[in-house]
Structures are given as structure tokens and as C-alpha cells.
Design a protein around this nucleic acid. Structure first.
Length: 400
DNA sequence: CCTCCACTGGAAACCTAGGCTC
DNA sequence: GAGCCTAGGTTTCCAGTGGAGG
């Protein structure tokens, strides 16, 4: 057999067929995966389990607020407990309904409501209804079915930041509309402790009936978690121990982020597989770190609206930092060239702040005395990445 | 210590797409 | 199908501001 002479595609298919891939199961390394056993989170597991347990006898559990940095297991533990609870109630006459919404992804009040509706098998049109109408429909749906509902609002700080606490206030009062055999319990998940400050005290006291804190994992704990996943994810002996250590160390260096550790391992595995290596080594992990960062940026840019892309292009055409006025001038020049109506400077200022938040540009506000007060704007990602990702856009392609 | 630049960022008005009612 | 309503994005308006230069 001469592998060199074979069609490369045939080889890939053959490998897949023979199951000689280094992966046993990729799914184990996906972010949505919920393991059978959760390590180092006994305390939180018991606490959350205890808080939800009244549900088993048909009583309303307390509202709950969960805190912890990204990748500390908040979402996984919550979903795990709720899944187990659903199993327990499956053969009873308790009608338990769980709605999970990530409010960073469902970024407006209305989208949060449609998402909750979807989770409860209630179709809501994606636009056209008022917030209060959508809200009433959900409440009526729960009441009619006598549901014991749990609303999990993940990354709840985003909802508060973008839309205030009006919706949350309505949620805390929804039980007044419901009858005895139906209720809604709220679970808020946040990685920012400070968001409490911007809540109405009434909302806070209602939402904060119980509180559970998730601390970051240590590097040793991360390593143990990875070793556990490796057992199910990879063919035995195909992952170097030093590669695992490196994943754990990289993820631990930030703040004990298990999601990042697992992502690194998955991407490292995929890179190793792609180059037909039979082991995952340190260098694959290093490559994975770069690849993940690059993908994050590419995705962020590609999902930008057209004006966001044009601003990015304007910013990236300067080497040094520039103030808002100069960026705006460049931006209007670009829009003229491709025949698009420019947005106002006020709007561009706001969009620049959004790009700053996304980490694509750096735009701190500085005062230059007599030279006025403005943003100090600079591109924050490699020039070549900007070009590569903007090439996808037909209207912009011609400019580059 | 005062001025004054070049915006910032809050607030309200305006616009548009799309569902609802009759 | 006309007329109404709302959410979300944008524009309009404008008071407020940090600090170098006088």
C-alpha cells in the first residue's frame, strides 16, 4: 500500500470508515455537552438540587441567582440538575416546563420572550406583537396547562445592560396572574456580580431569594476534568499528557475556565486529525489557541452589519490612533465610493463603542485639552485578519 | 484659575418592517 | 386590504466634560 499514490479524499473517507480517527467521540468535547458526572461542583450541585427539590411535591421553588466567571460550570450544573429533575417528574402528573434562554444571544426583551415561548411549545411571531402581549400569551399558556415552569435566564447581566430590568420586574410578578397549580420560578445566571446594583430593589429581593456562587477551577481541577473527558473523547494513548497539561495551564492562566480548556483540547484534536497525526501534541494545542482566537474574530466581523464593517475598514486604514472626527471623515469617504448613505457621527460614535466592546478596536475616551475630548481609536486585531474577513462581503470586496 | 475644543452620551423624536383587527 | 400598533434602529438636539494652553 502506497498512501502517497492514493486520492487524499479517499484516504480521509477510508479513515473515517475504519474508525481510525483519533476521536472516539467529539460530542464529549462540545460546549453543550452535559457529562454524566460533574467534577468538583458537589457543593453547588447539592445547593441547587436542594433549592429545586420542592418542585417534586408540586411546590414552587425559590427564585435563584447564580454567579461565577465564564467556564465555571454554572450553565452545565444548572442544566444537569434540571435534566435530572425532569427525569424524576416524567412519570408523575406534575407538568414541569423548563425554558432556557441565553439573553446575550436573544439580545432584546422581545427575543427573550419568543425564545421562552419556543421552549414551552408556544409559537410567537418574531415581530409584530407588543412585549406585553407576548408576555400575556406566555402567562396564559402556562396557566392553561397548569405548568410548573422554570425560566433560566443565562447571562442575565446582558439583558439588564441593554434593556433595563422592566422585563425582569414583570417576570417576578407573573405569579400574580397564575392560579394555584401553576407558577414560574426564575433562575438568573450571571458572570458579573455588579449587575445587581442596577436592579430595582424590589426585583432584586424577589430574584435573590437564593444565591449560589461558582468559584473558578484550579489548574489541577481543570486537568482532572480534561483527563475525564479524554477517556471518552479520544482513542486511548492518542493524547500526550503534556498537551493536556498545557490546555489546563492556558485555561487556568485566565481564571480557571473549563470551557476554554475543553475547547482547546477539541480544536487541538481536530487539527491533529486534519494533518493525519496519530497523537495530539503540545504544538497542536498552541495552534488551537491561535485558531480559536482567529475564528472568534472572523465570526465577530462577519456578523457585523454593513456599517460596522465599513467603520472597521476606516479604522484599519490608519496606522496611528485617530479621533472620532477623522475616522468619521474616512468612513463617509468610503460610503460615498460605494454609494451607500452614511450614518450620522453620533451613531458612528456609538458603533465605535460597540466595536470596542467586541475587542475589534480599542477606543478609550481621552481628553486632549484644547484639542478637545474624543475617543482614541486604533485597530485591535491583525490587519490581515480584517482584510480576510471583509473579503466575504461582496459590496466591500471591491474596495480592498 | 479660567477657557474652550471636539466630542461624549442621554433623551426624545422619527422611521421602517411586520403582525393584528376588522 | 386599509389602518393601527410596536420593537428596534437611527437621527436630532443638546447639555456636559477633562485637561492643555493661556
Amino acid at each position: 500500500m502506497h498512501p502517497d499514490n492514493e486520492d487524499p479524499l479517499d484516504m480521509i473517507f477510508a479513515r473515517a470508515l475504519q474508525g481510525t480517527s483519533i476521536f472516539l467521540s467529539r460530542d464529549v468535547l462540545r460546549t453543550e455537552y452535559i457529562p454524566d458526572q460533574i467534577l468538583f461542583r458537589d457543593h453547588q450541585l447539592k445547593a441547587i438540587g436542594g433549592i429545586f427539590s420542592p418542585l417534586l411535591t408540586g411546590h414552587k421553588p425559590s427564585n435563584l441567582l447564580i454567579y461565577g466567571k465564564t467556564g465555571t460550570g454554572k450553565t452545565v450544573v444548572t442544566r444537569y440538575v434540571l435534566n435530572r429533575l425532569l427525569d424524576k417528574t416524567k412519570n408523575t402528573n406534575l407538568n414541569v416546563a423548563i425554558a432556557y434562554v441565553n439573553t446575550r444571544i436573544a439580545s432584546t426583551e422581545y427575543r427573550v420572550l419568543t425564545e421562552i415561548g419556543r421552549n414551552l411549545d408556544l409559537q410567537l411571531p418574531f415581530t409584530g406583537l407588543s412585549i406585553s402581549e407576548a408576555f400575556k400569551r406566555i402567562a396564559y399558556h402556562i396557566k392553561e396547562r397548569g405548568s410548573k415552569a422554570i425560566f433560566v435566564l443565562d447571562e442575565i447581566d446582558f439583558l439588564i445592560k441593554t434593556s433595563g430590568d422592566n422585563l425582569l420586574y414583570e417576570f417576578t410578578r407573573v405569579n400574580e396572574l397564575l392560579t394555584q397549580n401553576s407558577f414560574v420560578t426564575l433562575v438568573g445566571i450571571s458572570n458579573d456580580l455588579r449587575f445587581k446594583e442596577s436592579l430595582d430593589p424590589r426585583v432584586l429581593s424577589s430574584l435573590n431569594e437564593e444565591e449560589v456562587l461558582f468559584s473558578p477551577y484550579s489548574v489541577d481541577e481543570l486537568k482532572a476534568i480534561l483527563l475525564d473527558r479524554v477517556k471518552y473523547a479520544f482513542v486511548p494513548g492518542t493524547v500526550d499528557e503534556s498537551a493536556i497539561n498545557l490546555c489546563a495551564a492556558m485555561a487556568g492562566a485566565e481564571h480557571g475556565d473549563a470551557r476554554r480548556a475543553v475547547d482547546l483540547l477539541r480544536v487541538a484534536g481536530e487539527l491533529a486529525e486534519r494533518e493525519n497525526a496519530n497523537r495530539v501534541e503540545d504544538r497542536h494545542v498552541n495552534m488551537a489557541a491561535k485558531s480559536i482566537e482567529r475564528d472568534r474574530i472572523l465570526e465577530a466581523i462577519q456578523s457585523l452589519p454593513i456599517h460596522g464593517k465599513l467603520i472597521l475598514l476606516a479604522v484599519s486604514s490608519f496606522k496611528d490612533t485617530e479621533n472620532t472626527g477623522r475616522i468619521y471623515a474616512k468612513y463617509t469617504e468610503i460610503t460615498k465610493r460605494i454609494g451607500i448613505e452614511p450614518l450620522t457621527q453620533r451613531r458612528i460614535s456609538a458603533l465605535l463603542s460597540e466595536l470596542d466592546l467586541l475587542g475589534l478596536v480599542s477606543a478609550p475616551v481621552v481628553s486632549r485639552g484644547r484639542m478637545g475630548r474624543s475617543k482614541k481609536i486604533r485597530i485591535a486585531i491583525p490587519q490581515e485578519t480584517v482584510r480576510a474577513s471583509l473579503m466575504d462581503d461582496e459590496t466591500i470586496k471591491a474596495l480592498i
